[in-house]
Each structure stands twice: as C-alpha cells, then as structure tokens.
Computed example of a mutant assay.
Amino acid sequence: MKKLLFTLLGALLACSAAQAQIGIKGGVNAAVLDGQDINQKTDYQLSYHAGLFYVYNVVGPLSIRPELLYSVQGSEFKQGKADYETKLQYVNLPILFDLKLSKLHLQAGPQFGLLLTAKEVGTVVTGYDFSTSPPTPTSYGNVSGQVKDKYNSKDFSLCAGLELELAAGLRIGGRFNAGLTDIADYKDISSANDARLKNRVIQAYAAFQLGK
C-alpha cells in the first residue's frame, strides 16, 4: 500500500511539474558597480547566480516568466591606496515578458532585489617611503569584513536578454541587468559628492525546463 501511495504521489508531482512549467537555471555573472562621483576605478568581477523559474502562458507566443535567483554581484575597486573587491549577495526576483519566436525567446522586464550580505576583501597601503617622489608604498594590510550598512537593502533593475531552446528542455541564454537604484547608503555622511553606485550585471546561463 505504501509503495502504491508513493508511486501515485510521484506521478502527481510529475504531472504538476509538467503543467506548471517550472525549471532550474544557473550561470556566470560579470558584475560591476557603476555610477557617479566614484573616486576609484571599478572593474567587472566574475561570480555566479542560480535559482528557479516559472513559465505562465498568457496568449499565443507571449508568456510571463517570474524567477527566484540567488546572485553574487559587486565590483573590484582600485585606487592609489586600495585594491579590493566588494561582494554583494542578493535574492533577486525578475518578472519578465517572454516572446517566443520559434526556438528563440526575447525577454525583458523589471527585477526586484533584496541584499543578504555585503563584504569587502582586498588590500590597502599602510606605509610609504617618503624619500622618493612620489612616495613609494612599502607595506600593505588586508581588508576583510562585512559592510552591509554601507548599502541599501533593496535594488530595482531592468532586464533584457535572449534565450535559445535546445533539445529536451535544455536552454541557454544571456541577459543584461541595469540597476536603477542608488545602492550606496551613507548613514553618517550625506553630501552631493557621495558616490552613487548602481548594479550592472551581464549574465550567461543554462536552464532546464520541466514540462512543455
């Protein structure tokens, strides 16, 4: 009897997955923090994202595709006295319009993000040789710590991308996420010269859809 119940439950879950058109995805991020009044050089850093998606058909080739993703973003900062990476960990919720053109999908829509953690890792100059001109750095110290209080907990972005259907539910795609929110949060200092940071993320991924 138990075996029969488990068999029926498995069949029910399989049918539900087929009807729901859910899937899993994961891939690579190339992320940077860009904006205004940044007195440092910012470079893209590689990270990753992973999560789930759901496809709801609206009419004909048009669907709505919400996703729930864990995404590591941030940037590499460089200036004369410091060289460090900022790693921002988000839970992101893109809600995309998906237009199917044969096996190619055009996707665009908003994304809402919630910051989980923020960490800085790198080095700073701690000593100089002032007998040279300009002074030469002689010693360095490590930077490592949580800096979540320097960033807003919420982020809003616009997304656009392409996705290509392959065999048996497998898909590959690319996407660009342009942040609209100034995520810098300076609680102790507020001036017109404060940096205004926005997320910029280029994503490449593979996805597998359950159901048809």
Rank of each mutant, 00 (worst) to 15 (best):
M1L: 09
L4S: 06
L4E: 13
T7C: 09
T7K: 05
A11E: 02
A18Q: 13
N29Y: 08
A31C: 09
V32A: 14
D34V: 11
D34R: 13
N39I: 03
T42V: 10
T42S: 08
Y44L: 09
Y44F: 15
Q45H: 14
L46P: 09
L46R: 05
A50R: 01
G51A: 04
L52G: 12
F53C: 02
Y56V: 10
P61Q: 02
P61M: 05
L62K: 01
S63A: 14
I64D: 00
L68G: 09
L69V: 06
L69N: 07
E76I: 02
F77C: 00
Q79K: 08
G80W: 05
A82C: 01
A82K: 04
D83N: 11
E85T: 09
T86F: 02
K87D: 01
V91F: 14
F97T: 09
K100E: 07
S102Y: 10
L106H: 08
Q107H: 07
A108L: 14
G109P: 09
F112D: 00
G113A: 14
G113Y: 11
E120F: 13
V121Y: 11
V121M: 01
G122S: 07
G127R: 12
Y128E: 00
S131K: 14
T136S: 07
T136W: 04
G141F: 13
G145K: 06
V147M: 01
V147W: 07
K148V: 13
D149N: 15
D155H: 05
S157I: 04
A160Q: 03
E163K: 12
R171T: 05
N177D: 15
D182I: 03
D188K: 14
N193L: 06
A195P: 15
N199M: 06
Q203S: 12
A204Q: 00
A204I: 15
A206T: 15
